[in-house]
């Protein structure tokens, strides 16, 4: 197997760090007496951060003209899916012990849970269609499917907005970041925000790709 590039290694380590952080703190008892609550919130927030990081790759590559910056897209996207899965499973299994007589009414009377479920299923499709052999077999179907990431992100952000109690500032901040990342993809704007090619950037770029 080919040795992965530096940028991919960095992305992998970055994806594992939050889980490590949580496990260490959990072992130290930092989330007692109700670790389930903290895990739900921590995994949910981490999933959103990685989703936005994944969406930030292409605009950043354009701005800095560094092809390496586009590479962590997939790693961050998968990380987002795994954290989102941990988030949902915490809620369904650790919190509710899969008791459907309690869970079904919750999904019926809380639209934000249905949004979360829809988003998770979409992320699952994106994760499955990111498998190389699927992509090879289906020509560019996977590219079309992967455009779903934008509506999926929007669903997640709405889910988060309604899940948060009281102070909605972080949810609004994420929505603004998402908006900026979308605007940066508009062709007219894309060409305007590019900064001058710098040799130093290109040196870093080569190192990251190596």
């Amino acid at each position: 197997m080919k040795r992965p590039s530096k940028i991919k290694l960095i992305a992998w380590v970055a994806s594992i760090l939050p889980a490590g952080w949580f496990i260490i703190n959990y072992a130290l008892g930092a989330y007692n007496p109700y670790p389930t609550l903290f895990l739900t919130q921590f995994a949910g927030k981490t999933a959103i951060v990685f989703l936005l990081l994944s969406l930030a790759c292409t605009p950043l590559r354009n701005i800095f003209s560094c092809s390496s910056l586009n590479q962590p897209r997939k790693v961050f996207g998968l990380a987002s899916f795994y954290y989102a899965l941990a988030h949902a499973l915490t809620f369904l299994v650790l919190d509710y012990h899969l008791k459907w007589n309690w869970l079904l009414p919750e999904f019926q009377n809380k639209p934000y849970l249905l949004l979360g479920l829809a988003a998770l299923l979409l992320l699952l499709v994106l994760a499955l269609t990111s498998i190389r052999s699927f992509q090879k077999r289906t020509a560019d179907l996977w590219i079309k499917i992967h455009r779903w990431v934008y509506p999926t992100t929007l669903l997640v952000l709405i889910h988060q907005y309604f899940a948060i109690k009281g102070d909605k500032r972080t949810a609004i901040l994420y929505l603004v970041i998402f908006g900026i990342l979308m605007i940066l993809r508009v062709p007219f704007i894309k060409s305007k925000v590019r900064i001058k090619r710098e040799d130093s950037f290109q040196k870093i770029n080569r190192w990251l790709l190596s």
Binding site: T36, H97, W102, K110, A163
Partner: peptide
Amino acid sequence: PRWSQASEQRIGESGR
């Protein structure tokens, strides 16, 4: 709209 009012987590217990 956010939390379950039909069931609860008693702190210190496992399960709701």
